[in-house]
């Protein structure tokens, strides 16, 4: 490893810039994520900056389950981040869909759409946990820890609501309102 490689690794470790993508969450994780930027946690002392454009970012921070409308946007944003890049999924939603799993508009885990490197569990996770997750992602970015081996699945076709799981769809027009006593 030449001196230049070492310098680049150090620079990548010390200057991660984040882009925040809410792929359809409830805003709970977003609030905890933004708390990391406040004076109490102040991630700028670690060189972490929040950027408004994915072109400037190294770390893509995903909150919320992937919905039908955001799946394509998530892939576009992922493609806009220049290499090398890592994805941090914050909260339970992007790992499993959480309470939204099975909804007809939710595709489920973020892994189906973009490759996720680090999961931060919690609903929502504490800012400390988010910072720890970003630190783990940054180690991957600097090449200090290897990336997870699994390849992401192909984007599944829009799932049809499963009648057996959710029960029959109520027919609103057919049911007469009950007469008041």
């Amino acid at each position: 490893m030449s001196i230049f490689d070492g310098l680049v690794r150090t620079a990548r470790r010390r200057s991660p810039w984040l882009f925040h993508l809410n792929s359809g969450g409830c805003n709970g994780c977003d609030i905890e994520y933004v708390a990391c930027l406040t004076p109490r946690y102040d991630v700028e002392q670690l060189g972490i900056l929040q950027h408004g454009s994915p072109r400037h970012a190294d770390v893509l921070v995903v909150t919320g389950p992937i919905t039908r409308t955001t799946a394509e946007a998530a892939q576009t944003v992922y493609a806009q981040v220049p290499d090398p890049k890592v994805v941090v999924a914050i909260g339970t939603c992007p790992s499993s869909g959480n309470v939204f799993a099975g909804s007809p508009v939710v595709l489920g885990a973020a892994e189906h759409v973009i490759p996720v490197d680090v999961y931060v569990p919690g609903c929502p996770p504490r800012p400390d946990a988010i910072i720890a997750g970003i630190a783990e992602a940054v180690a991957i970015l600097a090449g200090e820890t290897p990336r997870r081996a699994e390849k992401p699945d192909q984007l599944p076709a829009s799932p049809k609501p499963d009648a057996s799981e959710h029960g029959p769809t109520p027919d609103l027009d057919a049911s007469e309102p009950e007469a008041l006593p």
Partner: peptide, 24 residues
């Protein structure tokens, strides 16, 4: 803003990191 702020070498590492990235 009552924050600690970035360390002294931050602008240098930001520059090196940006140069080392592969643009789209």
């Amino acid at each position: 803003q009552h924050r600690i702020g970035p360390p002294f070498y931050q602008p240098f590492f930001d520059f090196v990191k940006l140069v080392s990235k592969h643009p789209v």
